[in-house]
């Protein structure tokens, strides 16, 4: 059986590999240690700049990868079906974008977790992580159930 990259199984395999790699990067980078994250976000204490290196490292790989993607896409040499190309194309700056991001930042500074590291930390079974994840799911649900309707 030939496995096509864009078959449902092919998509799941590459997505699984991406999630697995992502988790390892978060762990190695210090993002799953909420105290390292808070040490970065707290400028009033003993500042720990290490997380800036995580972002720089990630962008150093992703930026050229995106240029390659854009070139392949333009020349229609993409290994994926164009119908599934899901890179956002809208450029409009609206209040939802800025208010939503600002709310997210407050939550990040309060708890020291953003979604990825929190999900990766579920395997520890630690109560604070479980509380955070349950509340995060509730926040996502609340948005879909109530707020998204009014936008």
């Amino acid at each position: 059986m030939k496995l096509e990259a864009e078959s449902p199984l092919g998509l799941s395999i590459s997505a699984f590999a991406s999630g697995l790699l992502f988790a390892l990067g978060l762990g190695l980078g210090g993002m799953t240690d909420a105290n390292t994250v808070l040490g970065f976000l707290n400028l009033a204490g003993d500042w720990n700049p290490s997380l800036a290196f995580v972002m720089l490292g990630a962008i150093a790989v992703y930026a050229p990868a995106y240029r390659l993607y854009a070139k392949l896409h333009r020349n229609e040499q993409a290994p994926w079906q164009s119908s599934m190309c899901n890179v956002p194309t809208h450029t409009h700056i609206d209040r939802q974008l800025l208010v939503g991001a600002a709310i997210f930042g407050v939550g990040w500074g309060l708890g020291g977790f953003c979604p990825g590291p929190a999900l990766v930390s579920v395997v520890t079974g630690a109560v604070p992580v479980m509380v955070f994840i349950a509340a995060m799911a509730l926040g996502m649900y609340a948005f879909r159930r109530f707020a998204a309707k009014g936008l």
């Binding site: 997505a15 390892l24 762990g27 980078g29 995580v54 962008i59 150093a60």
Partner: peptide, 23 residues
């Protein structure tokens, strides 16, 4: 370690982009 972790995160994201055009 942080830089290495970042590079791996970049690879993981690039994999999803180049294999299926997704963010």
């Amino acid at each position: 370690a942080s830089t290495l972790g970042g590079l791996i995160i970049g690879l993981a994201s690039a994999l999803l982009l180049l294999s299926q055009g997704r963010i």
